[in-house]
Amino acid sequence: MNQDKRIRVLVAKPGLDGHDRGAKVIARALRDSGMEVIYTGIRQTPEQIVDAALQEDVDTILLSILSGAHGFLFPRIMELLKEKGLGDILVLGGGIIPEDDVPELKELGISEIFGPGMSSQTLINYIRENLSQG
């Protein structure tokens, strides 16, 4: 991708979960690293998130969820992204997501799932590396 263009990131909170300390901290850290960050706020439907991704023309979407509803919400978001022709956006997940569920989520096209204790630098590096390959 064009090196001059700043990476645009959508940080999204799908479902009814109100825990957004992690999402906000990550959003700040990505912004401080030079990326353009849009935060959806809490309690977003899959449709709202995909619309925001389309309107904001983002390169990557970070989905944060701690309520355990990822099994329903993540597949729905991936399906809508494909429907809207946004299947090439880098999608990452974070929050409380049991290891057992990770393979299935990756099969849907979610590139990586990050758990508690991840450093923001790990995420920044991951996004930069994966977008430059794309």
Binding site: G15, L16, D17, T45, S67, G68, A69, H70, G71, L73
Partner: peptide, 22 residues
């Protein structure tokens, strides 16, 4: 669970995936 806390019944569309979870 979150639907109860936000006043949605379990059959509400926004409750999908959240029923009985937290």
């Amino acid at each position: 669970d979150l639907p109860t806390q936000i006043g949605y019944d379990s059959d509400h569309s926004l409750s999908q995936g959240e029923v009985g979870k937290v």
